Amino acid sequence: MIQIEIEPVWRFRQREDGESLQIMLDFLAEIRTSGKITAAADKAGVSYRHAWNLIEKWSQFFNVPLVLRRQGSGTSLTPFGDKLVWAGQRLEARLGPLLQNLSQELETELNQMLPQGPLVLRVHASHGFAVPKLRDLLSREPDIDVDFRYVSNQSSLASLVHDGCDLAGMHLPQGELRKRAIAASRGWLNPNVHRVISFVTREIGLIVPRGNPLGITGLDRLLDPAIRFVNRDPESGTRLLFEQLLAQHHIDGTSINGYERSEFTHAAVAAYVASGLADVAFGVEAAARQFNLDFVRLLTEDYVFVCRRQILEMPEVQRVLSVMRGPEFHDAISQLPGYKVKDAGAIKTINEVFRRSE
Score class of each variant (00 low, 15 high):
residue 7 E to Y: 15
residue 8 P to G: 03
residue 12 F to M: 04
residue 20 S to N: 10
residue 21 L to Q: 02
residue 27 F to W: 07
residue 42 D to V: 14
residue 47 S to G: 15
residue 49 R to T: 13
residue 49 R to A: 15
residue 50 H to Q: 15
residue 54 L to M: 10
residue 56 E to C: 05
residue 62 F to N: 00
residue 64 V to S: 13
residue 76 S to K: 05
residue 79 P to K: 04
residue 79 P to N: 05
residue 85 V to P: 02
residue 88 G to Q: 01
residue 89 Q to S: 14
residue 105 E to M: 09
residue 109 E to A: 09
residue 110 L to H: 13
residue 112 Q to A: 14
residue 122 R to I: 03
residue 123 V to W: 08
residue 130 A to Y: 02
residue 131 V to S: 00
residue 135 R to K: 15
residue 137 L to Q: 12
residue 138 L to G: 01
residue 140 R to D: 07
residue 148 F to E: 01
residue 150 Y to D: 00
residue 152 S to R: 04
residue 156 S to N: 03
residue 157 L to G: 08
residue 160 L to N: 10
residue 163 D to I: 04
residue 163 D to Y: 10
residue 167 L to P: 07
residue 168 A to G: 10
residue 169 G to Y: 02
residue 172 L to R: 00
residue 173 P to G: 08
residue 181 A to H: 08
residue 181 A to R: 04
residue 182 I to M: 03
residue 187 G to E: 08
residue 191 P to Q: 13
residue 192 N to H: 12
residue 194 H to K: 13
residue 197 I to Q: 02
residue 199 F to I: 02
residue 201 T to E: 01
residue 202 R to A: 14
residue 204 I to A: 01
residue 204 I to N: 03
residue 209 P to T: 01
residue 214 L to A: 03
residue 215 G to A: 01
residue 215 G to E: 00
residue 218 G to C: 06
residue 235 E to G: 12
residue 235 E to P: 11
residue 237 G to W: 00
residue 241 L to C: 09
residue 243 E to F: 12
residue 249 H to G: 08
residue 255 S to N: 06
residue 257 N to R: 02
residue 263 E to Y: 13
residue 266 H to M: 08
residue 268 A to L: 03
residue 268 A to D: 06
residue 269 V to S: 01
residue 270 A to E: 09
residue 270 A to T: 02
residue 271 A to N: 02
residue 272 Y to T: 13
residue 272 Y to P: 04
residue 281 A to T: 10
residue 293 L to D: 01
residue 295 F to R: 00
residue 298 L to E: 00
residue 299 L to A: 15
residue 301 E to W: 03
residue 301 E to S: 04
residue 301 E to T: 13
residue 309 R to V: 12
residue 309 R to F: 06
residue 314 M to S: 15
residue 317 V to S: 00
residue 322 S to E: 08
residue 332 A to V: 15
residue 332 A to N: 04
residue 334 S to I: 15
residue 334 S to G: 11
residue 337 P to G: 09
residue 343 D to N: 07
residue 347 I to C: 10
residue 355 R to A: 11
residue 357 S to V: 13
